[in-house]
Design a protein around this nucleic acid. Structure first.
Lengths: 249, 249
DNA sequence: AAAAAAAATGCACAAACACGCAAAAAAACG
DNA sequence: CGTTTTTTTGCGTGTTTGTGCATTTTTTTT
């Protein structure tokens, strides 16, 4: 394995797990710890990582925007993103809704994944624009400044022409009888069309919001294929969903 | 086997496997490692591969280019933005192209201005989303990561349905006989449709680029209503434009 | 304070590299 | 067609780079 390959792998690992241990790296990459230390030294010199005793930590490239810092349940959302990223594969056509969970997902997509992603979220598009291999299609429309997503009929129409392999849908409300629900009517219509355009629908939901219902219906629960949450998929909370053949991750 | 044949094969291999080793190549292509090294050296000189000890890797597109470009002539662009902002009035429907000059303009729009702005530039949309009274319509499409704008047929079509009061157009080339020109073909088509959708067209151009011609034509000079530059509007450089009844600001 | 873990340092060695040169191959020319 | 010129290739030389190991120093843990 080439030195640069190792460097890339180390950076990718850091991106997803935020820390790496020299010991683990030497084991996984099949080189001596000395070599790993030299690698980390180089990466530190390039200002790409923050080296500490025992390994290295992720270097925060930029101070993240204010609204992101204040995001509720950010740790839970990062957990969800870590599980969801495993569903991504090269060659897929992907639709991503405009949730903060999806933003976390966008941040940790490995650089070797080569796929097409449709989104109508400004921050997700910005994040993905730094990815070397993802083709980004932004769905235009009137910008909702609060949610930083585009809304309106101009968003719904183009979605009808998409045929996606997988849809990552962030949500505020999922319930066994009422299905997927959403507080904003316009967003509910957009989410509905996104789901109808996708072969496989993954709902990402923090555990505290499972079994909550919002004002506007998006789709019945039967339209959902999988739920990714921050907690153990064997939790009793999900038993009803499992009975309906949903995959819990 | 000819040298160019090898080069092509090497590039093909790189595309599929993302890395090549000099040793393997010399074995597969039946030439000495020295020859392979010379090949790789040439390909590196053409910026097609990233050469490393032991072989070569796929060249990753640096996304930094946009940030680099946006800082060129930044003082001139701020001057232009200061002049252009005076043309903005509440109630207008505005189209903004994706230049760094327009980004500077977006930053200084007074908070009391209440207008609708169409744009296809990611950074401009992000900037405008912080404005309290501007309604932002983002024109979607495939994202060009380098310029951070959307391009393609999906951008041009929606513009035909717009009717705008004023269009702020950043440019790399304006010339009295060739009119507005643009290095990127797709962008030239988008700019053309933007101008046709607008009542009044303002071209913003740093003085050093006045009288420069790029590859693709956007519109003849007669379609332009005003030019905003960083220098004195009475400069002799503009006398020809004035004769055609263009406003110089 | 002692023990353990990790890091720095110096060294050895193999692999990969650069450079010059000459042979071979290809192209250009009369 | 043969000859000259240019390009491409392989080889010998010495140099650089990447890696692992032993030893010492530093940091962390107990």
């Amino acid at each position: 394995m080439l030195k640069q390959e190792r460097h890339k792998l180390i950076l990718d690992m850091l991106k997803t797990s935020k820390k790496v241990l020299s010991k683990n790296l030497s084991d996984e990459l099949q080189v001596s710890e000395d070599t790993i230390r030299r690698d980390l030294k180089e990466l530190e010199l390039q200002d790409l990582i923050y080296r500490v005793h025992g390994g290295a930590l992720l270097k925060e490239i930029r101070v993240r925007s204010y609204d992101e810092r204040s995001t509720a349940d950010i740790d839970e959302k990062k957990k969800i993103a870590l599980k969801a990223v495993k569903l991504l594969k090269s060659g897929q056509v992907i639709i991503m809704s405009g949730s903060s969970t999806n933003l976390e997902l966008a941040k940790i997509i490995p650089s070797e994944i080569n796929a097409t992603i449709y989104t109508y979220s400004l921050p997700i598009a910005v994040e993905l624009s730094h990815h070397p291999a993802i083709e980004v299609i932004f769905i235009g429309g009137k910008l909702n400044k609060e949610a930083q997503v585009t809304v309106g009929i101009d968003v719904v129409n183009p979605i009808y022409n998409i045929s996606a392999d997988i849809c990552f849908m962030g949500t505020d409300g999922i319930d066994i009888s009422r299905g997927l629900t959403e507080p904003n009517w316009e967003v509910s219509r957009i989410k509905n069309s996104m789901i109808r355009a996708s072969n496989y629908v993954v709902v990402m939901c923090v555990s505290s919001r499972v079994n909550s219902v919002k004002r506007h219906s998006v789709v019945p629960i039967t339209e959902i294929d999988a739920i990714v949450s921050d907690i153990n998929p064997d939790h009793s909370m999900f038993s009803d969903f499992k009975a309906l053949d949903l995959t819990i991750i």
